[in-house]
Design a protein around this nucleic acid. Sequence first.
DNA 1: TCAGTTGATGTTAGCGCTATCATTGCGCTT
DNA 2: AAGCGCAATGATAGCGCTAACATCAACTGA
Lengths: 392, 392
Amino acid sequence: MEETVLSGLMSCLYHETRCIPDVLLENCMGRSFDSRPDKSADGSRDNPRATGAVRLSDVAAAAGVAAMTVSRALNQPELVSERTRERVQRAVIETGYVPNRVAGALASSRSKMVAVLVPTVAHSLFADVVQSITDTLALEGYQVLLGLTGYQTQEEAAVVETVLSRRPDALVVAGTRHSEATRARLKAARIPVVEMWDMSDDPLDMLIGFSHRAVGEAVADYLLGCGYQRFGQAMADDPRSHQRAEGFNARIAAEQAARPDAGIAVTTCWAETPASLVGGRTAAASLLADMPDCEAIVCSSDTLAMGVIAEAQSCAMAIPQALAVMGFGDMSFAAATWPALSTVRIDGAEIGRLTAEHLLKRFESAGSGPVYDVLDVGFEIMARQTTLASRS
Amino acid sequence: MEETVLSGLMSCLYHETRCIPDVLLENCMGRSFDSRPDKSADGSRDNPRATGAVRLSDVAAAAGVAAMTVSRALNQPELVSERTRERVQRAVIETGYVPNRVAGALASSRSKMVAVLVPTVAHSLFADVVQSITDTLALEGYQVLLGLTGYQTQEEAAVVETVLSRRPDALVVAGTRHSEATRARLKAARIPVVEMWDMSDDPLDMLIGFSHRAVGEAVADYLLGCGYQRFGQAMADDPRSHQRAEGFNARIAAEQAARPDAGIAVTTCWAETPASLVGGRTAAASLLADMPDCEAIVCSSDTLAMGVIAEAQSCAMAIPQALAVMGFGDMSFAAATWPALSTVRIDGAEIGRLTAEHLLKRFESAGSGPVYDVLDVGFEIMARQTTLASRS
DNA sequence: TCAGTTGATGTTAGCGCTATCATTGCGCTT
DNA sequence: AAGCGCAATGATAGCGCTAACATCAACTGA
């Protein structure tokens, strides 16, 4: 008898046609079977390995169709008749079904996840990229698995392996310098890979970024054009900063060769990563000690630049008259400080958006292999108040 | 002796960090089966649904043991003899095996993933928390699934559902205001939930944060103590800012009641989210128009505060003499600007670390139910140069 | 000597989904 | 009436892993 009563309850639960208000929904969320500890129709409910969550087959029973039909109604609704789709829809709501994409991913070998590997999100440059990738991918139902690699190649290898074990549909990684083991693993994974935030002659697959060397060169050209001749560099000790320093130094060396008597010189101080205000102050002090007639200090980040400015102000050096300062990143505060910081602007959100869009395109045209797309998004020199356009 | 070395190596292999030297790995990456196009031992390699990746059973065949033994060697090395463990490890390297945690998660219903839901990572406050959670969880081999909810409750509901479909082992969410449907889903998921960055009388499970109302009260007390009497508020229009504004207004109201003739007043301007410099400037202009004798402007973020300062400077108002400004967040630039911004400091990294640690503790003692732990990490008022300690 | 114990390994049967193919019913032609 | 094409749905068999139990040799103590 109890069986009958309960099965009556079932059919009410499952076959009613009204649209259920939230208030009612709350009570049947989760396992609507909670009130019936015994096995359900298919008898598998008493299996000790079952999770107790509502499954596709529960929804199917509620809707009076096969499990496969529910799966189709949810994932390829165009293959299911309107009538059935509606019934499934109702059953999903009634049962409080939350699909299990772990099982789905295993069965279909598509996870709808994209791994994103950046050194850190605690600095706004990468945070912007992550935000933008996440937002863009979300539009198509993809989610981001976040991996923080720090600034060390070794750590990256470990993160890559852990992340690949989740079988993401694609992987995005900041930078182009990877250990051979990492490169091999990424190739073996046979998924689209986007390297970003950098340029390289030898991309693994897709590459979206800008040339750090070109940034260094452009900054040198800009400052030389302003008339500066004696330079300090306050650089964080990471690979990308090194590239910018190389570009800068190359241009300075060329100018020295062209005008050997102009007194052009550069000295460099490497600061610890992660870059900090204090690091900037220390670096500035050291640079000014080495080169007391230093006219301009180029920094590998806006944060370091703020430290340099603070140090200069504490020595009562006027900026930009006594000392020019150049940052990198154009963080939110750069334009707002006084004097406003001259810096290099990278459009992280744009890099993220492009990355996500290219991936989505790849997913659509699933079959086609790697594209070896390379996109240079460039950069912009923001000449503000910490540099003088023409130094007299 | 060598035995010991290898087993030490194993345990790091299978938990978080790979310690195998790159040199060893390089040569055996990818499918070592590529050279043997025919089916492997169990004959299932010609199945059309197989992914073609190296599987546990391939490793097992290579090591001459059962698949289950390989699984154990990787996940519970203490249950496997040293000799076998060593052979398995060699087979893993030879085959270039990368475990499939999707399958593992389905079989064991433990995903070793934690979902983290924040409004955005493009602002350093939440970025710090995410960074800190990710780092701390990584120590125990857990990974972060990132969900960005924006600032709308409706969006949150959708993100929660998508994220739960990945069956994370726990969920961390910023804020305590959720729709009833979301609360129901979270309860039904039966996983540990941490609400953070906030306080509430009615936590879902664990709660680690601080009271926004208390922040508002403390800021009011601080400014009243400095001698300020006529206040503007430039607040972003999000729930947490509202709470801070409420706290602030409550204290001001109390003071007005206590000293009715002192001329204490407050006016509020709501800025759009996300907060921006421009928003701050606009809000400041509007506040100064409403209340020309305004003495201090309290902002819901450092970013808005920078905008307020910019607007004041453009009107040639001296800060803090003519106008005091108070921020919120103590972002990296706050201490570095001139004048240095007075603000409220929240230790996001600490919140993240505590969150992760409490979750890890919960995972260890798997059986025990919710703890209803509530932790208030507090905040700190950073009195810098944009406020005057005693206004004469 | 033999039941009882232990530790190491193997076997089996799913986890909850989807790819694939099979089946059904319907309208259309010939 | 038989045959065909098509759309909608169902049944089956895995995806790659691990929980749970089974097995087996090597001991233990009486």
